[in-house]
Amino acid sequence: MARKITYQQAINEAIDQEMARDENIVLMGEDVVGGSGSDGEMDAWGGVLGVTKGLYGKYGDRIMDTPISESGFVGAAVGAAASGLRPICELMFIDFMGVCFDQIFNQAAKFRYMFGGKAETPVVIRTMYGAGFRAAAQHSQCLYPLFTHIPGLKVVLPSSPYDVKGLLIQAIRDNDPVIFCEHKVLYTMEGDVPEESYTIPFGEANIVREGDDVTIVAFGRMVQQALKAATALAKEGISCEVIDPRTTSPLDEDSILESVENTGRLVVVDEASPRCGMAADISALVARKGFSSLKAPIEVVTPPHTPVPFAGKLEDLYVPNPDKIAAAVRATAGYNA
């Protein structure tokens, strides 16, 4: 597995390989081609950050620009999924869920259950999330806990190039609606990615690093931050196990509980807002089902409960970083040690 490509290239490759395999797959979104109807070039953008660049040349009208009307095209993707296609729909920023949420949570998420198991809705909604681009309050949020709250949706947070390809292929082949959350800061991350198509099952956490003293559960981009903290802490003699759940729904509860059973100490790192988010959810899980294993209070590392600020200095203060994670680990490791 020597070939290294970026997270962004891995997404493109996953879509490419799947579209070559199954002609029922279509891709739609705002400027996923770029140039539709204009007098200039087609595939001018290939997505706002170029993630889908080049696919139009291979798949023509299966790659579709949409008007800027998220309810319209997200709903169309959902309806198409219930009618035999397997659409991949790009919601450019997760923040835009506000203008199309009904089609996701009242329609897509409900069909299978509400129609007595007689409907399948194989739609993937790819969406970009997270802070770090100085993109301010309406283009930087981590709203995946809101999707995680909705039964019937699967929610995926890939943290590496290898994972993003395997999880995206899994998402495309899944018969349920999948919210596929891509952290914009990770797009340039490089890593080993097999050229062949492969899948990673949903609901299986990745034990990214093994350790005995403290369990760190981290999501999405925070996995890399947690690993940096763990490396630094190893030099202090604190051995951290880093768990990346990969999917918030379904959630691999067992891997988290088993790790805490071994370490007795838990730090949860999440870039989403602290209230009703993954940090609160994982804390509740371990408090409820792993109480007897705990040797110290659970620590959480999240942003403050504020909108994402614009100014670089403020945004850097907002996002959890390895130092803050390490401090939390030290706090829990030092409790009654």
Binding site: Y198, I207, E210
Partner: peptide, 17 residues
């Protein structure tokens, strides 16, 4: 049999075909 060895096998097994 450690984590990485298991992961390597699973990564292989998850390849199409």
């Amino acid at each position: 049999i450690n984590r990485t060895l298991i992961n390597d096998i699973l990564q292989f097994k998850r390849i199409d075909g």
